[in-house]
Write a protein that binds this DNA or RNA. Sequence first.
DNA 1: TTGAAAGCGCTAACAG
DNA 2: CTGTTAGCGCTTTCAA
Lengths: 336, 336
Amino acid sequence: MSFQQNKNPTIYDVAKRSRSSIATVSRVLNSPNQVTRETRERVLKVIDELGFVPKAEARARAIRGTRRIGVLTPFFTSPSFVERLKGIAYALGKTNYELIIYTVHSINNVSAFLASIALSGGLDGLIILSLPFTEDDARRLMEHKVVTMVVEYEQEYFSSVDIDNIAGGEIAGKYLLEKGHRQVGFIGEINPPDYAIRPALARLNGMRNVMAKAGIDIRDEYIQSAPIDPESTRQAANKLLDLPEPPTAIFAAADVQAMVLMKVAADRGLRVPQDLAVLGFDGLEYAEFMSLTTINQSLVDSGRIAAELLLTQLTDTSRSVQHIKLPLALVERETV
Amino acid sequence: MSFQQNKNPTIYDVAKRSRSSIATVSRVLNSPNQVTRETRERVLKVIDELGFVPKAEARARAIRGTRRIGVLTPFFTSPSFVERLKGIAYALGKTNYELIIYTVHSINNVSAFLASIALSGGLDGLIILSLPFTEDDARRLMEHKVVTMVVEYEQEYFSSVDIDNIAGGEIAGKYLLEKGHRQVGFIGEINPPDYAIRPALARLNGMRNVMAKAGIDIRDEYIQSAPIDPESTRQAANKLLDLPEPPTAIFAAADVQAMVLMKVAADRGLRVPQDLAVLGFDGLEYAEFMSLTTINQSLVDSGRIAAELLLTQLTDTSRSVQHIKLPLALVERETV
DNA sequence: TTGAAAGCGCTAACAG
DNA sequence: CTGTTAGCGCTTTCAA
C-alpha cells in the first residue's frame, strides 16, 4: 500500500480513511464492545495500516520510561563549567538517565528557570552549577520532588560538592611566599552583586591571611577585580603591570585569567617567571600546554561526583544531605 | 474569602486568582524569561498556594511534537565539540526547546544510540556532531520523523553544516610556502578506521596539493598520525622533532594538537617560530592566549547555524535538505 | 510584556 | 450502534 502517511496519524486520519467518525475510532480504542465487529475490524485495519499510536499514550510512555536529570549552568562563559559538565556527562553516560542542559545567561533569571524546572520540568534530579538560588526556589524543588545537587556552593537545603576556597588562597599565598615574592598581585572576579557566588573573593582572602601572617599587607592597587572574559582580564592585567612598582607575582583566581595574563606579559616583553610569576587556579588541561603553575581543583571530578551522589540519592531516598569538599593540589610547573 | 480550591486547580484557576491570563501562566511555566519578574512572582505565589501541578497529558496534547532537541556528540574529547555545543545551546536558549545531550564514547555504538533515539527518544530534532552513521540509521530517523542535522560531515540524507577541509589544508600550505617553508610536517588524526569521519586527512591532502603544485613532495616521515589526546600528540611531535632533519614548520590539524606541539618545542628549547613554525586549525579561543597562528573554522557558529537551520526545518516542513559550507579564515599571530 | 482566541488530539454526552 | 459537538487543560499565534 502506498498510502504511507507522512504525518503522524491522528484519529481524524483513521476516521476519514475508515469512513467512520473520530468518536467511533475513539470507541474501538477505549470501549471496543460498543462497536460492531465489522466497524471495529474496519477501523483496526486502518489503524494498523497507518501505524497509528495515540499521541498522549506515546508521550506518557516515553516520559514514564525515561528518567531525566537536568543541569542548570551559566552559559559556558568559563571553561570550568565545561569541565564540570564533562564529569557529569561521564557519570550519567553509564546510566540510562537522560541529560538535559539548561543554560542561564543572566543570574537574574535563575529563579525563573528553577521555578519552571520544578513545576513543569519533569526531572528526577537536578544539578545546579555555581548559581545562587532563593529559599523559595529550593522549597519548590523539594515540593516537586526534584532531587537537587549543588556544585561550587554550599547551602543548607541540598547536597553539594565544592572546595575550600580560602584554603586554596592560602596554598597560593604560601607558595608565592616560599618562592620569595613579597609584592603579590591578584586578578579575579571579586566585585559582583552580593547575591552571586564568588569563590574568587575567598581565594583572595586565603592569600591575604597567609600574607598577613608573614607581616605582608597586600596593597589595594595590587588587587584587580575582573570578570572571567579575556578583555576584562586583559585590562586588569595591564593595570597591574602599568603600576610604577608592579607586583613580582600575580595570582589569578582562574586559569583562563592566568593565561590572558601570560599573554599580556609576553606582549610586554616580560619573561615569566623571571620578570613576573604567574599562578593560576583550576587545573584546566590547557594549563599544562602553557606550563602554567596552578592549583588544581579537580573540576571534572566535581561534576562526576555530583552526578554520582545524585544518582545514589535518587535510588536510596533515605540518604540525607551531605556536603563534599574536594581536595586541592598545587601543580608546580614553570610560571612561578 | 478563602478560595482554597479543593479540586485539582488548572491554569484557569491560577490565572483568575493571580489576575493574569492563562497565557501568562503558561509562560511562567514554560518560557519563564518572557515574563516580568513581578508578574512571574505573583503567578508563582498563586501556583504555590493552590498547589497547582500542570497536567502532563494536557500539555502533551497541546504541544505539537515534543519540544525536545537532542545532540549526539562524541564524549568531549576535543574542545571543538564543546565550541559547537556552545553554539547549539546559544541558539536553543532563545526557544523553549529542551536540549538533550547524548555522549557517545565509542564510534561503535553510534548506531545503537541512533536506533534508540529514533525509536524511543521522543525527539523533534537531532543534531549529530562529527559522527558517522549508516543508511539504516538514517532511514529509521526519517521514518520516526526526527528532523536531523549533521555537523562536520556531508551526506545525502540530512542537512549539514561543515567546512571545506581540503581548502583549509590549501590555505595552510599556501601560507607556509609564503613564509618560506619547504620542509613541512603534519600532525593529525588521519589514520582511523575507514568508517570514521576524518577531516584531518582532507586537510593534509589540501596542503599536499598546494605543495605538489610548488614542486614540493612532503616526505612520508614528516606526516604523523595522532589522535587528538595530548599524549599521542606529544609522541607524534617528538617523532617529528627527533628526525635527523626535522621539518621547519608543522601544520597541526587541530589547535589542541598545535598547543601540545608548542609545549614540546618549548621543552626542547626550540623557539617558535624561529626554530619551528607551528600552524594550527580550528580557531579556539585558547589559541589566542598562546598567540597561535591558526585557521579559524567558526566552531561556535557551526553549532548555532545547525540549530537554527534545524529550528526552521521544524516549523517549515517543506524546507528541503541543504548543505552549508562555513568560511575559513587564516588568523595570523605569532607562531608562523 | 501581556491577553484574547484559536487550536492541539482526544473523550464523552447527546441525539439520532 | 454511530456521528455531532462540546469540552478537557494547556500552548501558541496574533494584536494591542
